[in-house]
Design a protein around this nucleic acid. Sequence first.
DNA 1: GGTGAAAACTCATCACT
DNA 2: AGTGATGAGTTTTCACC
Lengths: 147, 147
Amino acid sequence: MTPLDEVDTKLVALLRVNGRMPNSRLAELVGIAQSTCISRVRSLEDRGVITAYTARISPAALGLSLQALISVSIKSGARHGIQAFSDEIRGLPEVVELFFLGGAEDFVIHVATRDSDHLREFVVSNLSAHLSVASTRTSIVFEHVVN
Amino acid sequence: MTPLDEVDTKLVALLRVNGRMPNSRLAELVGIAQSTCISRVRSLEDRGVITAYTARISPAALGLSLQALISVSIKSGARHGIQAFSDEIRGLPEVVELFFLGGAEDFVIHVATRDSDHLREFVVSNLSAHLSVASTRTSIVFEHVVN
DNA sequence: GGTGAAAACTCATCACT
DNA sequence: AGTGATGAGTTTTCACC
């Protein structure tokens, strides 16, 4: 892992805010030639610093206006099933993010659902019913801020 | 809030995975003209369905290889300070995301830090020392999956 | 590793359906 | 609302430093 120089740091900061910033403006703001800029950005992608360019979608706009964090504890006898469990969970459309934790809880699942019925249904069908799950704790998300 | 039709849904799905997909390929994959495609995407942006285009940065590549979730409870006498507290917290460079919760805990803070010293320093300086904070609980993130 | 200039491609507008 | 064609703008390549 090579540390980032000043130019790379600026590029990362700019692209984090606007992943579609034109290469020409990027080069201008950083103070390098367009051709240099494009090879710098390529290098950041190749080195795994930039992992993807994504459009942020408002969950509410998709009709998913109720978000929650669900803490999940796995039964101590079912630890070996953690990988299989996480593979099942991460594929579900309601799942926004999945945190694999160390500590009292094994996972935190960030979900976006239509309403409380949908949320309850998600927990009951995908979590409570699962053999590996010891317990769950659901907290409603009032606001979600991403940096 | 107008619900998304089939074309919009496809566009959202494609741009979520690759926010830099060229308009030409986007139009081709969805089966509409380029000019139609561009106005559809504009409309999604204007309606607030697409909120931003961002580059995903690997925290490890920035030297922030220790991630954690920190649950924070606010003192019952300091509820009015929640907004001020969240404003302070969200500006910190270690903060990846901030969840405003209903339930036993008031916040969950997702942080990315260099190492355990940095993490402890973050909790001590920014949370434990804060007058409004009743208690915190820190869990290490072993893996973080985003959908 | 960085550069400028040219070629290839993409975006974005427009008159029309 | 959707389309094809057109011109402006952008990305990307390449020979050279």
